[in-house]
């Protein structure tokens, strides 16, 4: 220290250098502590910021989950089930064109119409994933020819358009001969696979809540008539193959 003093002037800013040297140790310690702070502690502050963001995120997610839970608890279970039954009746229970033919036969029978011909092309069932719907569904088409009284054709078409499952007529031509109307139609029904999603928590409250469009659809199809076909009815007419026991088929 004395050696250092010998290099310094006697006075600095009107004070003896020895007085200034008293501050050298505390200032040195402070600089070291500040350097430690800057080198090791400041990066921790950045980490803490990230941690706080994480905490914020978790707190928000918890809040949203609780809101969704409260909403789900407020739903009337019985009402939900009845809505589900109604809406499930609106689509085909399976992607089966023969089921669709059965449904058309049932509708026609109410108006004395009979399916005289139908054609189902294998592979016609189309997977559709459209931007507007943002989900995948299947269109099940069938071409049918139905014959019945001319007087009932309008009521029959009306019934087709107001039936459950919901059907859409893609093509239509009609010929009237005497009192009989022969109607050729391409009809489609729709099949939607069971809804599956692994991350139920990823759904937002808006995803869970019914919007006006959906409620309008529900109230609209509520007025439609359901033409359900049981599994037994689908299998009806499909006879089991029985192999012939004849040795010579010509005798």
């Amino acid at each position: 220290m004395n050696k250092l003093k010998s290099y310094l002037p006697d006075k600095l800013f009107g004070k003896d250098v020895a007085v200034w040297l008293v501050w050298s140790m505390p200032v040195g310690v402070m600089i070291i502590l500040m350097l430690i702070f800057a080198r090791w502690v400041v990066p921790q502050i950045i980490d803490i910021k990230g941690l706080f963001n994480q905490i914020d995120k978790v707190v928000n997610e918890t809040k949203v989950l609780n809101e969704k839970r409260v909403y789900l608890l407020s739903l009337d279970r019985a009402e939900l089930e009845s809505k589900l039954t109604l809406i499930e009746n609106g689509v085909l229970s399976e992607e089966n064109s023969y089921l669709l033919v059965k449904i058309i036969s049932k509708i026609g029978a109410d108006f004395e119409y009979q399916v005289s011909d139908f054609s189902v092309t294998l592979g016609d069932i189309k997977d559709v994933a459209k931007k507007s719907t943002k989900f995948e569904y299947q269109t099940v088409p069938v071409d049918v020819v139905i014959v019945g009284p001319k007087a009932n054709f309008l009521a029959m078409i009306n019934a087709v358009e107001k039936s459950l499952p919901v059907l859409s007529i893609d093509n239509y031509s009609m010929t009237i001969t005497g009192d009989l109307a022969t109607i050729k139609m391409s009809i489609s029904a729709y099949y939607l696979p069971e809804w599956t999603q692994n991350k139920l928590e990823a759904l937002s409250l808006t995803d869970l809540t019914s919007n006006n469009d959906e409620l309008t659809v529900l109230s609209k199809i509520d007025t439609y008539k359901y033409y359900g076909v049981t599994e037994g009815e689908i299998k009806q007419g499909v006879q089991k193959f029985v192999p012939s026991d004849r040795v010579d088929p010509f005798y």
Binding site: N66, L84, T133, S168, L200, L208
Partner: peptide
């Protein structure tokens, strides 16, 4: 607590997707 209500979630989603499809049709 939320996942305990998964059946309600699946039901509401089934309704929602079918309603969307039928609405479009």
């Amino acid at each position: 607590g939320y996942l305990q209500l998964s059946s309600e979630i699946i039901t509401s989603q089934s309704i929602k997707f079918r309603a969307k499809l039928l609405g479009k049709v």
